[in-house]
């Protein structure tokens, strides 16, 4: 399948990008309007998402077909590797912004608010004592119970770590051309991903209903939900990608030596895994 023609494959003109841009036009305006409770926004959002899904479906479908028909030489394969690497790097930086915010609040701004700084000397917030978890100095926010680490989160850690192992087994199976095992391990990975997400949904419900822990529970609520939420979103995307790859595996795509589509998704999966470890330590444990 992968003959090298000596030519770098440059795809033909395509309408997918402009379709994607149209989607974002609707999404951008739709989201802005929705945030301001303007009815029109919901409709725009819906159209935007519809176009976006259509675009992704067609575009990725085309890429898979091009790949299978042997259009991608080794050079293209290498490009995909670099591309995915730096994409994941940019995702790491996205999470870094939120981890940075968490660090800043816990280590700097909350102690400052509690009047601990020798520079400021004078506290703005009277008797506020700081500490973590906290809703912040104002009594504007209701009290809550923080999320413990050793219940569901620990189980979720185990689930995600296990899924890292199963996807590696799948990879080995692919490399040794054991297709049955490949499909089975892929399925296991997907199931673990779904399990993880289900646990997280349960955890959120529990937080809202039982712990009174909400997105607007001050500094703790903000960082807790934004970090775990964006992670959860990435797991969702990762799971969808795994499902796509599963169907491609089942359809007989990929060869033992050429299967970047598979590997890219595996890298991504490991990345969400590592981010989760960071979360488990910095959000739940410490």
């Amino acid at each position: 399948m992968s003959q090298d023609t000596g030519h770098y494959y440059v795809p033909a003109p395509s309408t997918y990008p402009i379709t994607g841009s149209a989607a974002l036009l609707f999404l951008g305006f739709g989201a802005a309007l929705t945030m301001n409770k303007i009815e029109l926004g919901y409709g725009l959002l819906a159209i935007g998402f519809a176009i976006l899904f259509y675009m992704c479906f067609r575009w990725f479908g085309t890429v898979a077909a091009e790949s299978e028909s042997g259009k991608y030489g080794l050079d293209v394969d290498k490009s995909f590797r670099w591309g995915m690497t730096w994409f994941i790097f940019s995702e790491v930086m996205f999470f870094a912004a939120f981890f940075g915010a968490l660090y800043y609040m816990r280590v700097l701004s909350i102690p400052w608010l509690a009047g601990e700084s020798e520079v400021l000397g004078q506290a703005a917030w009277g008797a506020y004592e700081g500490g973590w978890p906290t809703t912040g100095p104002s009594d504007h926010y209701e009290a809550f119970t923080p999320m413990g680490a050793w219940g569901l989160p620990a189980i979720n850690t185990a689930i995600l770590l296990t899924s890292g192992v199963t996807i590696t087994y799948a990879h080995w199976a692919l490399k040794e051309n054991r297709r049955d095992a490949l499909n089975k391990w892929m399925l296991a990975t997907i199931l673990l991903g779904v399990l993880f997400l289900s646990c997280q949904i349960y955890e959120y419900v529990h937080a809202y209903n039982d712990l009174n822990l909400k997105l607007d529970s001050g500094a703790y609520g903000s960082t807790f939900f934004m970090l775990t939420g964006f992670h959860g979103f990435h797991v969702t995307v990762g799971t969808i990608m795994l499902i796509v790859i599963y169907f491609r595996c089942a359809a007989g795509h990929f060869t033992p030596d050429r299967h970047f589509g598979f590997e890219g998704v595996a890298w991504y999966w490991h990345f969400v895994d590592v981010v989760w470890l960071g979360l488990f330590i910095f959000v739940y444990l410490l």
């Binding site: 400052w112 608010l113 520079v119 400021l120 000397g121 004078q122 506290a123 703005a124 917030w125 100095p137």
Partner: peptide
């Protein structure tokens, strides 16, 4: 010196 809401600077 900036005056920051909720914080005190001097």
């Amino acid at each position: 010196q900036d005056a920051i809401p909720g914080f005190i600077r001097d």
